[in-house]
Design a protein around this nucleic acid. Structure first.
Lengths: 396, 396
DNA sequence: CCGGCTTTGTCCACTCACGGGAAGAAGTCG
DNA sequence: CGACTTCTTCCCGTGAGTGGACAAAGCCGG
């Protein structure tokens, strides 16, 4: 099953490949308009790409007033695999060379079951996608895990919520199984890359992406590049203190953001509210399922449950408080909110916005959009595919 | 007085110039070891640099076992000017091409007197340095101002503590007066560049630099590059909230960091303590001078005054609280503390460290040095010179 | 349908950057 | 003083890249 996908031989070829990826098929002439190369040079490079099979000719382009040009597109058989391992579920998707999703699967699974069980699941899902006919083999794969990663080696380091994964050679193992190059990164970084590729953050060079799921993390993009930090733990904002001497947090400290908001905290608060009789709706749902989740809060809130709306507003204010600080520090051009709890939608967003606009200085917030991510569940896998293709479409 | 300093013609020449700047004079052979160029190519580029006068031959190098090599150094007549405008004082310095300081002046001055008055002062100081013989003209100048700057244009934008400077064409005006290219940046960014050039942050690629002076700011370096943010206000951490519904701050919000710590807050707290009779030492100093400053607190603290030590410890804890959050977010490899109040020294540092190490996650703090800046008062001007030479030593 | 005009693709000769060999200059060391 | 090493210069071969010329292909008006 091993594929040896060719790699561009130089920066020019890499540039051309990325243009074709992000802008779709184009004529040679249009490519020429975009890159600063002489016509002869361009012809040579395109010919070489055609030879290696990375791009193919694809019919004639529309005329621009003279002789018609031949269209060039990325080899349509190229396939990228994106895997997004969340705390409680796994997403797997296959994309074409333009990073459009051809097939997508989602399956609940607790990451704490450990790398072996998770890998089995991932491989089963990959097999299923393969059987559905969208791909035979892969030219590259990207995988996101919910914890810090030593990026160059592709190995998780000291991940708090995924015991058993510390030091597990994710890249190595997956590359072995799939027979293609594999990139490993933190799931929030991939979400940020996804939104940069196909979502709200297209053409934004400095932004961050707050993912509120079971935990809370943040992908940082500075100058168009993902900032991973010295040990790969940049963006780990779930344990920033929001309340001195506040609630006990699982990490051992007190008053962490995650002790007040995020899927886990929200579920706990909801159960408490249900038991204390503060919300009939929640009590009913608790009775029904035996336990409550963030989704239940979302449901009840849309049904107009006041207690739930308060929970969301309070949580949004906490997150907003943290984001306000980070906005002052980083001065981004955009803030994206994503992750599982985006079901909470505009109530949450409004609450976050209020807090940020009130607390940060006008110069930093003056023209700062705070928006929900566009890609939802596929942000991570899209980002994974982007990371992979960025790597493959760079000089060998 | 106008000088037309030559610029490197290509990236190779720029590389060589920076090597000579940061590593001092070297032989052609040593240069060859550092850059990936053939002997012939290197010889050609060095010859061209010699022709333009940017570098000069300078005697013979020590033998490495064979024929002795000719030393090459940057033209010793090159002069960079660094200007650091603080809230309450101005620093001006002249450096040689290796960015070593040849002459340095400091003068108290309130930035609120406006750009015209400040410029007069700066030009007077420059003239004084010129008269002292360290320079005749300048090949480039860098200037730091205590507020956000639109970097490409070299213009301050909406600076809270320097009314009258908004939109003042600093680059334009200074360039006119000095007859050389001028770069303008935020003072904390320059401090960070200074520490990166000649201080504790040499060879660190991701760090930030917290400057505690009258206000509190933070220079951010990501991937070896200063991060300025979308509107140039990145690092403006003085108004991050540390206490919900806390003290009223001059910015209109409540509970800002600067309402609790920094030169202004410290002076106010000290005067209050003196009036309330909590510190005999402070009361004496207040009587003597009519008012108190951060420096007085420092003096009293070294004399063992308990109230002052408490003030410093409390302030350090507040700053530490903010830094802890930023460390989680950014995961730097180093945190540098600088600015006027570093006179408070190790009491402050200890307090900050305690807070950060306690509050941030082990992975981010495990190997995170938190240190005082090495350069003190010359950090800003050194950074200004560095910024300028970076610009001059890049392809035209 | 034909001939001018535009755009695109191919070819070719010229230039120039670059690398590496050779030889000479300048030192070291025994 | 001679063998060896290191550094510098000279020179030529290679190959990449550019720009112009020309051919091919299409549009459009007559």
């Amino acid at each position: 099953m091993r594929r040896m996908t060719a790699r561009p031989a130089n920066a020019h070829q890499a540039r051309l490949l990325r243009l074709l990826r992000d802008g779709g098929p184009r004529s040679r002439a249009e490519l020429g308009d975009r890159v600063d190369l002489s016509r002869s040079k361009l012809a040579v490079e395109v010919d070489r790409l055609l030879e290696t099979g990375l791009v193919v000719a694809d019919g004639l382009a529309a005329s621009r007033g003279g002789r018609r040009s031949h269209n060039i597109r990325l080899a349509p058989g190229l396939r990228f695999l994106g895997v997004d391992i969340g705390a409680t579920s796994i997403d797997v998707a296959v994309t074409n060379p333009e990073l459009e999703i051809l097939g997508h699967l989602n399956q609940p699974m607790d990451v704490r079951e450990g790398p072996v069980a998770v890998f089995d699941q991932v491989l089963a899902m990959v097999a299923k996608l393969r059987d559905s006919g969208v791909a035979e083999g892969f030219d590259g794969a990207g995988i996101g895990v919910p914890g810090p990663v030593r990026f160059p080696e592709g190995v998780p380091v000291a991940p708090p919520i995924m015991p058993g994964w510390d030091g597990f050679p994710v890249r190595e193992a997956l590359s072995q199984e799939l027979g293609c190059p594999v990139m490993v990164d933190n799931d929030v970084n991939l979400m940020a890359m996804g939104e940069m590729q196909a979502g709200v953050a297209r053409s934004v060079r400095d932004f961050f992406c707050v993912k509120i799921g079971t935990g809370i993390g943040c992908g940082i993009v500075a100058g168009g590049e993902v900032h991973r930090g010295t040990t790969g733990s940049a963006g780990d904002i779930g344990h920033i203190q929001v309340e001195p001497d506040g609630r006990q947090c699982a990490c051992g400290n007190r008053g962490c953001l995650e002790a007040y908001f995020g899927g886990a905290a929200l579920a706990r608060d909801a159960e408490e509210a249900a038991r204390e009789g503060r919300s009939a709706e929640l009590a009913r749902l608790l009775e029904e399922n035996g336990r409550l989740s963030a989704a239940d809060v979302s449901t009840a809130a849309s049904a107009g449950d006041g207690t739930c709306l308060d929970l969301i507003r309070d949580g949004g204010a906490r997150v907003g408080q943290v984001i306000a600080g980070l906005v002052s520090f980083f001065n981004p051009g955009l803030v994206v909110i994503g992750g599982g709890v985006t079901g909470l939608g505009h109530t949450l967003l409004a609450s976050i916005r209020t807090q940020v606009y009130r607390q940060s200085l006008p110069l930093a917030t003056g023209n700062l959009p705070i928006v929900l991510g566009e890609l939802g569940q596929v942000a991570g896998v899209t980002g994974a595919a982007r990371l992979t293709s960025d790597h493959l479409f760079s000089p060998a």
